[in-house]
């Protein structure tokens, strides 16, 4: 192989000694270092489905906020004369013409009901002539509110419970875990239903009923994470230095638990929305005349075979909200815990 040398042009300086490069220069880190949070956000941004879901949810939440002050018409106002009108918009694109097939014949329902020209119900009306679009706006807002309030319960009970149980350990932990075991061996739905029978139905009682069982998953996750963190060197160091347990929890545990908590929150909200819809669907949820996704679905289901549009839109709305929350939660989990996805 020595012949190869001939192919390389050598000059008299070639064999001058230059020595090794400066070590410090070699060892400087070339890429900027990212904090854990920055890194997670960077990974989240790469997840298109999660980002689209995030924007979708932002839009839905904004519309819900608007619905507090404004809806196209009063969501609870009844116009029995205008009952069960199909969707119609000004230009009358297919599906929104205001016409329906009755006994095989296409009939303009709006003309039949003598609706004045220029009055449109974008998503139609229900059996009491209430504007379904307004009701859907209000319904989504109420469902989101329930989802968030119920999740707040999770945070307020679940996090301290999990931290105390995991941090104290020993007998405290055993007793606290037994309690969780017993509560979780009753199907949470049964607990919720029993609670709802006890309280008068309404927003508050639904939230409380769901809160009573909902915090368990959060408490379990937080406890497991606390147990892991407790044995970490830096927490051990803080304890050795004589920091109080409370200070350690605030300074070391909460930041480290944050990703677990955020992800679990994102999974809890859609679960709560589902539960509300379920309870309203079987008739013990939000009482009439208020609209929630569950009551809209329940009303729509009764006439679904003949007036399917009354079910379509709330069904689409709940599905989109649930999918968006789940995709976002998945994205967050992958971003915060890259191990879980790879």
């Amino acid at each position: 192989m020595a012949e190869q040398t001939n192919q390389i042009k050598l000059n008299k300086n070639s064999f001058n000694k230059v020595g090794a490069n400066d070590v410090d220069e070699q060892e400087k880190i070339s890429a900027p270092s990212l904090t854990f949070l920055q890194d997670a956000i960077r990974r989240l941004k790469k997840n298109k489905a999660a980002i689209i879901s995030l924007w979708l949810l932002v839009i839905i939440i904004m519309i819900s906020i608007i619905s507090i002050w404004w809806t196209p018409s009063d969501p609870n106002a009844q116009h029995v004369a205008y009952a069960n009108l199909p969707p119609k918009i000004a230009n009358g694109i297919p599906g929104f013409t205001g016409k329906a097939s009755v006994g095989g014949e296409i009939v303009d329902k709006y003309a039949q009901a003598n609706v004045p020209k220029g009055t449109y119900y974008v998503l139609g009306t229900d059996y009491l002539g209430r504007d379904l679009f307004s009701r859907l706006m209000k319904g989504v807002a109420l469902s989101l509110l329930i989802g968030m309030l119920a999740t707040l319960f999770d945070l307020v009970i679940g996090i301290p419970y999990g931290i105390i149980s995991g941090w104290k350990g020993g007998r405290t932990d055993t007793i606290m875990q037994r309690i969780i075991e017993i509560i979780s061996s009753i199907p949470n739905l049964v607990v919720v239903i029993l609670m709802l029978l006890l309280f008068t139905p309404g927003l508050g009682s639904i939230v409380v009923a769901m809160g009573i069982t909902g915090w368990i998953t959060m408490a379990r996750l937080v406890r497991a994470e606390t147990l892991t963190l407790k044995s970490q060197e830096y927490v051990l160091a803080a304890r050795t230095l004589g920091e109080s347990s409370f200070k350690i929890a605030i300074k070391h545990l909460i930041p480290n638990l944050s990703s677990t908590i955020i992800i679990q929150t994102m999974f809890s909200i859609p679960t709560a929305i589902f539960f509300e819809a379920f309870l309203s669907f079987i008739g013990i949820g939000i009482p009439a005349p208020n609209a929630s996704l569950g009551t809209l679905l329940s009303d729509g289901q009764k006439t679904f075979r003949f007036l399917p549009y009354q079910m379509w839109y709330p069904a689409a709305a709940i599905s989109i909200i649930m999918i968006a929350f789940n995709l976002l939660a998945d994205g967050l989990r992958d971003a915060f815990d890259p191990k879980a996805s790879e």
Binding site: P270, A277, F278, L297, A315, S319, I323, N326
Partner: peptide
């Protein structure tokens, strides 16, 4: 995701 998101009664 669909199976997890769409409520079973829907």
């Amino acid at each position: 995701i669909i199976g997890r998101s769409i409520p079973n009664f829907v």
